[in-house]
Computed example of a mutant assay.
Amino acid sequence: MSVTFEKLGPVLVVDLLGRLDSANSPQIEGELLERITGADGAVLLDLARLDYISSAGLRVVLVIAKRMKQAGRALVLCSLQPNIHDVFEISGFLSILDVVPKRADALAKLK
């Protein structure tokens, strides 16, 4: 699992690559919280290269979403692979999170 961060204007873009599961979720959660806490503005989670997410990974996304909401900041997720989209749909996350099909859509929504 790897995470990259890129600042595009006021938006912090976070790319997740690989598998987000119980083996790496504590480390990824810590890294994400550190970066979003130290930044201002909106956050875009680009999941185009996320291959797998477990319940532990879903918890990380939920923690990030709660922190962003508490801070009054926007969070948008984009580019979910079909299998990831299915997990988000079954878990009910699609109804509580802002999810768009493409990165360009997310950036337009956040700017």
Rank of each mutant, 00 (worst) to 15 (best):
N83W: 08
A104K: 00
P10W: 13
D98G: 02
Y52G: 04
D21C: 14
V87K: 01
V3C: 05
V3T: 06
L8M: 13
L94A: 00
G9Q: 07
V76D: 10
L80P: 05
Q27T: 14
L107Q: 00
E89A: 09
K7G: 01
D105V: 00
V3W: 07
I90H: 06
A71F: 13
P82A: 03
A65L: 08
P101G: 00
E34N: 15
V11S: 02
K111W: 02
A74K: 14
K111D: 01
K69V: 13
E89Y: 05
A56P: 07
R67W: 08
G30F: 15
L58D: 07
G41S: 14
I90T: 04
S25D: 09
L97N: 01
Q81M: 07
L77A: 11
E89D: 08
G41F: 13
L75R: 03
G38T: 12
L80M: 09
V61C: 06
P101A: 01
T4G: 06
A108S: 04
L16C: 09
G72N: 07
G30V: 14
A74D: 14
G38L: 11
S55N: 06
Q70Y: 12
D40F: 14
P10E: 15
D46Q: 11
R67V: 06
L8A: 13
I64N: 08
F88M: 02
M1S: 03
I84D: 05
A108T: 03
F5E: 04
N24I: 09
K7S: 01
S95Q: 10
Q81L: 08
K69F: 14
V60D: 06
R35W: 11
S22L: 11
S91G: 01
A65F: 09
S55E: 02
A48D: 12
L97T: 02
E89I: 07
G38M: 12
E31Q: 14
Q70S: 14
L20K: 07
